[in-house]
Simulated scan of single mutants.
Amino acid sequence: MSSRPRFWQYVVLILLAAVFLYPIWWALSSSFKPAADIISDPLSLSGPTLDNYRAMFADVPIGTGFANTALVLLVKGAMTMFFCPLAGYAFAKYRFPGKDLLFGLVLLTLMLPTLVLIIPLLLEMSALNWVNTYQALILPGSVDAFSIFWMRQTIAAIPDELLDAGRVDGASEFAIFARVVVPVIRPGLAALAVLTTMNIYNDFVWPVVAVNDEAHQTLQVVLATLAQDITANRIGADFATVWGELLAAGSIALLPLLIIFILLQRHFINGILAGSVKG
């Protein structure tokens, strides 16, 4: 039998894509419509206008949210992408006492709901005087159990003979990791980069607890309080105005993740497939 997709499979995939993409298209297109038309005729295609974007930038500190999110993403993401592969490499290729127990404890933390950890983390940040600081936004969760597990499973598929060949050539352990392991697991690293970016970019619960001043608010916190900011900064703002600015802010917040996923889509899919098979 031919493995070539049949016509009805294309039809089903196109319909599913339309269902998933239509809300995104509607939000983007509606952000360029006059605010009144969004409520009165949400399915129409009115003439494009930038009024919603101009008003949103004037009413909401979305630039501060983007800057804080970018800083947290760069530093926290770099820490995740550096330390988690190293930890995964140690669990996958080294033998040391208590290795299985320690790895089991790492996996055990995956079963803890995020809400269970908020109060202990907040008390810890308070004891360190890190509340309303970038340290509180960056350090907790920068080395997480899922990333270690992902890297361990990906690196475990590398033949030990490659590592032994590097040791015979006189390479140090870190040189073996950097020159032998990293090039082989590049698809897995790309997948981890996409997942890490999405998790940090969309994180809301911890930032809203760790900081309560506008200077350190991340983008998701700014978006969550956007309606209150609009009504507070504009006396008499109606429902349509709030919706127009909400859609404008949401559309801007969507673009970075959309661009990153499009650029890394092939590597992300290859990494997911590579991480799902061992051997």
Rank of each mutant, 00 (worst) to 15 (best):
I14T: 12
V209F: 14
L28K: 04
G141E: 05
P34Y: 08
Q228N: 13
V168R: 05
D238S: 13
F20R: 03
L86Y: 05
R234M: 10
L50A: 13
V182S: 04
L71N: 04
F174T: 13
L257G: 07
F177W: 12
A227P: 00
I118W: 06
E173Y: 12
D238L: 03
A145S: 14
G188K: 07
V242P: 03
S251L: 08
K99Y: 01
S142R: 01
T114N: 07
T80Q: 11
I260P: 02
L86P: 02
F174C: 08
F261A: 04
A78S: 14
W243G: 01
W130P: 11
Y89Q: 10
V72A: 05
I200S: 01
P61A: 07
F174V: 15
F96E: 04
V75D: 06
L117Q: 14
L122N: 11
E124I: 06
F204Q: 04
M79V: 14
K99N: 03
A171F: 13
Q265G: 01
A240Q: 02
H216Q: 11
F268T: 01
K76A: 11
L163F: 01
Y94G: 02
E173L: 11
T64P: 03
A224W: 01
V209W: 10
M81T: 12
I260G: 03
A190V: 15
N199M: 05
N233P: 06
F239L: 12
A36G: 00
I155H: 02
L258M: 14
S3D: 08
A237Q: 06
F66P: 09
A35P: 01
L254G: 08
N212V: 09
A193E: 06
D144L: 00
G236D: 04
L102I: 08
A249Q: 02
A136H: 02
L263F: 14
L139D: 00
S147G: 07
M198H: 06
L117P: 08
G250V: 00
P187S: 10
L21C: 15
Q265S: 07
Y94T: 07
I260V: 15
T114R: 12
